[in-house]
């Protein structure tokens, strides 16, 4: 057996003529939390449903823990899923909901309820067993859905946008809870989201999808610091994408101005360069790309600027402690770090 919890081997899912998932291959390591990230319609949810067995692939092969599950229905795979809507059964109370999977898999009712109670306790839901789902808060419903999935001791746990129905404050706490639980129990988790912050915060690995294909897969750090192309650079957080030239190691030219910076190795010549807003330092004078402040905003922890330069308007985020500039002032932009991009694939 390999170390992969889930393997996709050139998996395609077509709906009519639309290829929602297009020849996707990957290995997801065991015990890791992997997020599928991408804009809506990129195929991330379809990929998750292919893992779950809620869709069967048009072509290709899927294995879970070394077992070929390509043609197996959802019920025959050892997975569990937490739905975006939670999908709690409204006619059953919390305990019955959590015990459901055990009961339909043939467990005695009493044994199933003992297990379910233990799982409710693990998730801090003691005493809520007799409530109906409609009598719980959003966060509690979410935890019931997780309990219901975990009680089956699945080989893989799947989350479909689990935070989208929670308010912003609760989101951060719940995502940390999910991450803690995953680490504590050593679960293999696949997690779908369209929110890149959420993905960066919880994942061991992030898999960015676009138009049914994997655009890039890597650790959150790799994706943020070293995106493969302008799509990823833009999707993983804001970036100024500029046309410039690579002169040599750590040497670039923007708008005819030669600048020193830090960057990964890239052949010399014209290139697209991505610069994160926080990688630009504004100086009153000195070496840097000349520009003029167009707009300035104070946000408390940071200041945001729009700076007009020869290569276009730059979006800059500076710590509040740095010297402040007002609209109309002339500045120099020092590029602390740039990311040379490959052109987008496809």
């Amino acid at each position: 057996m390999t170390d992969a919890a889930i393997t996709f081997d050139r998996v395609t899912k077509a709906f009519g003529t639309v290829r929602a998932v297009d020849e996707v291959s990957f290995d997801l390591p065991r015990g890791a939390l992997v997020t599928l990230l991408g804009p809506s319609g990129c195929g991330k949810t379809t990929t998750l449903r292919l893992v779950a067995g809620l869709e069967l692939p048009t072509e290709g092969r899927i294995t879970i823990e070394g077992r070929d599950v390509t043609r197996l229905a959802a019920a025959e795979r050892r997975i569990a899923m937490v739905f975006q809507s939670y999908a709690l059964f409204p006619h059953m109370n919390v305990l019955e909901n959590v015990a459901y999977g055990l009961v339909v898999n043939g467990a005695r009712k009493a044994a199933a309820e003992t297990d379910a109670l233990a799982m409710l306790k693990t998730l801090g839901l003691e005493g809520l067993g007799q409530r109906l789902p409609s009598e719980l808060s959003g966060g509690q419903q979410q935890r019931v859905a997780v309990a219901r999935a975990l009680v089956l001791r699945p080989q893989v746990l799947l989350f479909d946008e689990p935070l989208s129905n929670l308010d912003a404050r609760l989101r951060r706490r719940v995502r940390e809870d999910i991450r803690d639980l995953q680490k504590r129990l050593g679960l293999s988790v696949v997690y779908v989201t369209h929110d890149q912050q959420e993905a960066l915060a919880v994942s061991d690995l992030v898999c960015v999808m676009r138009a049914g294909k994997i655009a890039q897969m890597g650790t959150p750090n790799e994706l943020y610091e070293d995106p493969a192309d302008s799509f990823i650079a833009d999707f993983m957080g804001e970036a100024n994408v500029l046309d410039g030239e690579v002169l040599g190691p750590d040497r670039i030219a923007l708008g005819g101005v030669a600048l020193a910076t830090r960057m990964r190795a890239h052949p010399a010549g014209p290139a697209q360069l991505a610069v994160r807003p926080e990688s630009i330092t504004l100086l009153a004078e000195g070496e840097g790309l000349p520009g003029r402040i167009q707009r300035a905003a104070f946000l408390g922890q940071t200041r945001e600027y729009e700076v007009e330069t020869a290569v276009g308007t730059l979006f800059v985020v500076a710590p509040a402690a740095a010297p402040a500039f007002a609209g109309g002032e002339a500045v120099r932009c020092r590029m602390e770090r740039v990311i040379p991009l490959r052109p987008p694939r496809g």
């Binding site: 025959e76 809507s85 059964f89 339909v104």
Partner: peptide, 18 residues
């Protein structure tokens, strides 16, 4: 009745009959 209820049941190992 949201379709995810059926799907949730399926992912928990219930066949169509259950």
């Amino acid at each position: 009745i949201d379709r995810s209820l059926d799907e949730a049941s399926a992912t928990m190992g219930a066949g169509a009959v259950d």
